[in-house]
Each structure stands twice: as C-alpha cells, then as structure tokens.
Amino acid sequence: MRILVISLILLLAILHQDWWWWEAKEPLVFGFMPIGLAWHAGISLAAGLVGLMAVRFCWPDHLDDEVVEEAVAETGKEEAS
C-alpha cells in the first residue's frame, strides 16, 4: 500500500504539469471555470484523497506508541526509585 501511495503522489506531480491545457481557455467546467483552473482544483481534491489513503493505510502508528511506552517506562523508573 505504501508503494501505491507513493506512486499516486508521483502521479499527482506529473499530472500537475498539465502542458496539454496550457493554451486552453475552454471548456468551461460547470459553465464558469476554465479547464486549466478546474484541472488544478481537481489536483487539490486528489491530494486530499491521496492524503486520506496515506493516513488510513500508511500512518506510522508506532510514533504514538513509542511516546506512550517511553512515558510508561519513565513512570516505572520513578515508582521503583
């Protein structure tokens, strides 16, 4: 899953460089948004979705666990002394 998320981020970076819409003013998405702007608004939405996948499937849960373990260990030391 980590590889998929990294691939999606790279894909977003590639899709960001939309030279194919460079001169296009039309079509107007929803009747008012030039395609070049709509495309990049879509990139922002997609970045949010990829972020959702990243936190859902690749989140480093050990970061919170490590801190909790550390705190428990500290408390143990204090009690023992």
Binding site: I9, L12, A13, H16, D18, G36, L37, W39, H40, A41, I43, S44, A47, G48, V50, G51, A54, V55, P60, L63, D64, E66, V67
Partner: peptide, 25 residues
C-alpha cells in the same frame, strides 16, 4: 493556482505526513 496553490496542496500535505508527525514524536 497551479503555480502556488495546487503545488502547495501536494507538498505541504506530504511534509506534514513525513516531517510534522516525526518531529512531534
């Protein structure tokens, strides 16, 4: 928008994921 906003959307989010949480820990 593409120059400043959508690049920021992708890169800031990646930084918060890769750097922010680790720095916090």
């Amino acid at each position: 928008y593409g120059l400043m906003a959508s690049w920021s959307g992708i890169i800031h989010a990646a930084i918060f994921f890769l750097i922010g949480a680790k720095v916090w820990a």
